[in-house]
Every structure is written in C-alpha cells, then in structure tokens.
C-alpha cells in the first residue's frame, strides 16, 4: 500500500499556491491540494487517487485562525479540528459546529485534519457539509482571478465534488450566528464509535408561541452530498413543537429521501429508517435547546 509517485510543492503563500494550481491546470497536469491529508492519504496509499502533483497548504501563512467577525465566526481553512474543538469562541458562539467537530473521527485525526479540508473534500458521510447547509455557511474561495464567496447551498455539487475550480483554494469559512433562541442538534449512527456515519442528521429550529419556526433538517451519509429535507421541514413549520409532530416530520424525512446509498452496513431502506429515527431524536433534542 504505497502511493504512486507524485511531485510535491509546499508554497509559503496562498498566491503562490494558486499560481501553481493555475500553471498545472494550464499544463494539463493533475494536481491536488493537500490540507491535513487525513482523507487523501488513504486514497493515495490505495492508489485510488493518483495525482501527479500535490500542493501542500501546510506551510501557507495565515490560514490558521478562528476569529469573530461581528456575530459571525471566521475560521481559516487550515485550522485543525482540534483547535476548533478546543476553541472557547467556537464553543460559545457555534455550538452546533462545535458538537459536529467533536464527532469527527478520533483525536489523532482531529489533530491533523483541517476544517477547510473536510469541507473541500466533501465526503457525503462527513458532519461538516450538513452543518454548512443547516446554517448557511459561506466559503471564501481564492483563485487566479481573485476571490469569491460561495454559499453552502451552492458549494457541494456531488460525491466528493465542490464548486471550487481546479485552481481555486478554499481559504476561509464564515459561520453566521444561530439566530437567538435557535435549538440545535446533531446525531449520527455509526457501526463503531468514531466511524464514518451510516446516516446522520443536523437540525435547528426555533419556537414562537409553541409553534415551530425556521426548521432546518439536513441528512448526511445517505446521498452523494449532504441534503436538506424540505418536506420534513415544511411539515413542522407553524406546528406545535411536540412529539407527535416531530414523529410525523421524522417519518416524512425518511420517506422523502431520494435513493439513499446502499453499502454492506446499511441498505437504502435501513438508511431511511436511520434518517427517520435520527430526525425524530434530533428534533426532540433541538426543541429542548430552543428558547
């Protein structure tokens, strides 16, 4: 299990990294960005990923930070998950993202794995894209022609594919605040603790006069990307935040999935069941946090 040969560059600046990617694109050389490497390395070792060049962001200055931007939080793409998990700022301002971070793998993985890398890798079983969709995260992409902000709803395209162009690099993630009074929850089901989720749900909701408002439910691990479940969300809007309605929404969540993935650990119908169960549990949990 040794990777096929590749060349390696470790630029010091984002500009230099982008210039390298632009050059390789022009030359028809297959280049890949290396962030923490925790997902890419196994693919290299198994030779299922065979880039000709790796451009490592590890030495790029200024991509490792967590800072407040008004009510929002800005996280540099190369910030490690451990840094995010241990950040008091993240814990205080972004409880859902914080909880999601703690669900990622194990300590050794979080120590190396970057926040930006997980978003850009866009593994459908990853917790992060689901949080992005629930909370309308925004992604700052830098490329040869400057920078642009990509909203979460457009960022994830399909299985391990994002809106980023070949010469673009995800530089920063912007997490808007959860509106006051928002209840949140994230739960997942995996065969073993720390394994990739067979299915998971991230959800937020608010309550006004006992009625659900602004319900957001997103499933991960079931389709090629994380998916919002609008039918289930709609079913709760304006309805009482109680077990009966949560159950109904959960049932709709399971039914509304489009062709869930199937693997040896979970068939499509079992994934529907997991989504149903986890949706119900997340809504219950979120409701306890909603003011």
């Amino acid at each position: 299990m040794k990777p096929a040969p590749f060349d390696y560059h470790a630029p010091r600046t984002l500009e230099a990294a982008i210039a390298l990617l632009a050059r390789f694109e022009l030359e028809g050389v297959e280049a890949r960005v290396l962030a923490g490497g925790q997902s890419l390395m196994p693919m290299l070792a198994m030779r299922v990923a065979r880039p000709q060049v790796l451009v490592d962001l590890g030495k790029v200055e200024g991509l490792d930070y967590i800072r407040a931007d008004g009510d929002a939080l800005l996280i540099g793409a190369m910030t490690t998950k451990t840094a995010a998990a241990e950040s008091a700022l993240v814990a205080a301002q972004q409880p859902l993202f914080h909880a999601a971070t703690r669900l990622v793998g194990h300590r050794q993985i979080r120590n190396r794995g970057s926040v930006g890398g997980s978003f850009a890798h866009a593994d459908p079983a990853s917790e992060y894209p689901a949080v992005a969709l629930v909370q309308d995260l925004q992604f700052r992409a830098r490329g040869p022609s400057g920078e642009r902000w990509i909203p979460a709803a457009q960022f994830f395209v399909s299985y391990m594919t994002t809106r980023l162009d070949p010469a673009e690099i995800l530089a920063e993630v912007r997490l808007p605040p959860l509106p006051p009074g928002t209840g949140w929850a994230i739960q997942e089901f995996a065969r073993r603790s720390g394994d990739l989720a067979l299915a998971g749900i991230a959800a937020t909701l608010r309550r006004e006069r006992g009625q659900c408002t602004d319900v957001r439910i997103c499933a991960f691990g079931v389709n090629a990307t994380a998916v919002r479940l609008p039918a289930a969300e709609q079913a709760l809007l304006g309805r009482p935040a109680d077990g009966e309605h949560f159950s109904r929404a959960a049932a709709i969540a399971g039914e509304s999935l489009e062709e869930p993935m199937s693997c040896i650990h979970a068939s499509a119908d079992y994934r529907r069941q997991l989504v149903r169960v986890l949706t119900g549990r997340c809504l219950e949990e979120a409701a306890t946090r909603a003011a």
């Binding site: 290396l34 490497g37 925790q38 390395m41 050794q108 993985i109 190396r112």
Partner: peptide, 10 residues
C-alpha cells in the same frame, strides 16, 4: 498523529 496519514515531507 497517525504517521501513516502524514507524508514525511509534510
């Protein structure tokens, strides 16, 4: 860190 998931050059 898992040293199998890190390149020496990293």
């Amino acid at each position: 860190a898992r040293s199998c998931l890190t390149l020496a050059v990293q």
